[in-house]
Design a protein around this nucleic acid. Structure first.
Lengths: 210, 210
DNA sequence: CGCGACGCATGACATTTGTCAGGCGCATCC
DNA sequence: GGATGCGCCTGACAAATGTCATGCGTCGCG
């Protein structure tokens, strides 16, 4: 289907992380049919992924963002901190500027959307392995648009509020007073130009800030 | 990797529909490595899928639920109506009783979660092709449990409320009085055992009722 | 026919939410 | 060392939300 040198040596060694096992297997199959790429390990969540990468020291690490325990972004950041030299490609459903920004901050070399063509994945692996950067064109443009205006607290509070947690509950969980919680929400609502807490949470989620 | 008869004849002919192209390609790759399955067409949305199935008359049609234009459930229902004889397998992220129920009503023969093991997919194709039914075990039990307790109006109101639309807005959009909207929400909240409208919407979504 | 669901509506009330104006302590940065 | 920003808090008020009781038509069903 694509360029595929047959030599047994010089294979690009890859670790994949993805929480939906069926998709994980499918992605692995997609890469395995390329003659120059070898999937050396698979992981179902962030912790497994981190362990697998540290153990196998692959050339390239492909990961989803939303996973149990540790997000793909967290794993990428940790790998950057540890200077493992493994290049990271984020593969996700979400075309959100905030996610891309965080991905790049976390030292990722690639950012691919799950609705880009299938051949792109193997291509991306090869390019990233050569030291190039691969950003999905759909994101590349709007990437550095609005930065996240929310503070950490506002984010925490908004996340809970968006699930229907009442102010009192939120206050308890975060060890804040209820008034403070309402203040943060009010701030977030005004920053995002929303009509109420739920609207604000929806907007923040859409931008990838949540 | 699995049983794979090499004969050129008697291949199981499959059409796959999935809106995330990368996943579509990956799933196809996963099936192609099985010697007895041939992917004869791929579709990116419900309309393409319907056309492809009618054109190719495959043995098995594998589809996601959430797709543009027509959902996988809609396509399944239409195929049932037209008595094409093609068996349908739903592959989705969501372990929601409501979805499974609707899938079975729509005549689907299989319901698989994206986080079941990868080998299950080819297995499911073979079983369904033989006329068997394949339901993901995680769903099979709770499947025929609670039926949706919400009335149509409650559903409509709850959907909007869950996006942060204020009562007054909802009233306008649905041509109801604001008091009535609050009544429906109150009803829904109590039926679902929720704490407030947002919580109710969250619960309803999780059950696949929304 | 009459009964019971359902859709829609009031009005009144308690509670939660959203907004504003402050105030306190603690960093950080000229 | 003072300005500035941030996190956290208070209190008070207006607006939105949630709850109840109650009422009225209109169906469909036994």
């Amino acid at each position: 289907m694509t360029t595929a040198p047959k030599s047994g040596r010089k294979m690009i060694r890859v670790v994949i992380a993805e929480d939906q096992v069926l998709i994980l297997g499918a992605l692995a199959a997609l890469l395995e049919i390329e003659g120059d790429i070898a999937v050396v390990a698979r992981a179902r969540d962030g912790q497994e992924a981190l362990a697998a990468v540290l153990a196998h020291k692959p050339d390239v690490f492909i990961t989803d963002i939303e996973m149990p325990h540790l997000s793909g972004l967290d794993v990428a950041a940790e790998l950057k901190r540890q200077r493992t030299g493994t290049r990271v490609i984020i593969v996700t459903t979400f075309a959100r500027a905030g996610y891309l920004r965080r991905a790049l901050d976390a030292g990722a070399s690639g950012y691919l959307l799950k609705d880009s063509p299938a051949e792109k994945l193997a291509d991306a692996v090869r390019r990233v392995h050569q030291g190039l950067r691969v950003i999905d064109p759909e994101l590349a443009t709007e990437a550095w648009s609005e930065p996240d205006p929310l503070t950490d607290r506002e984010r925490q509070v908004l996340r809970l509020a968006g699930e229907g947690t009442a102010s009192g509950e939120i206050a308890e969980q975060l060890r804040l007073s209820e008034g403070t919680v309402r203040n943060y929400l009010s701030e977030a609502i005004s920053k995002l130009g929303a009509n109420n807490r739920v609207d604000a949470a929806r907007i923040a989620r859409a931008k990838g800030w949540l």
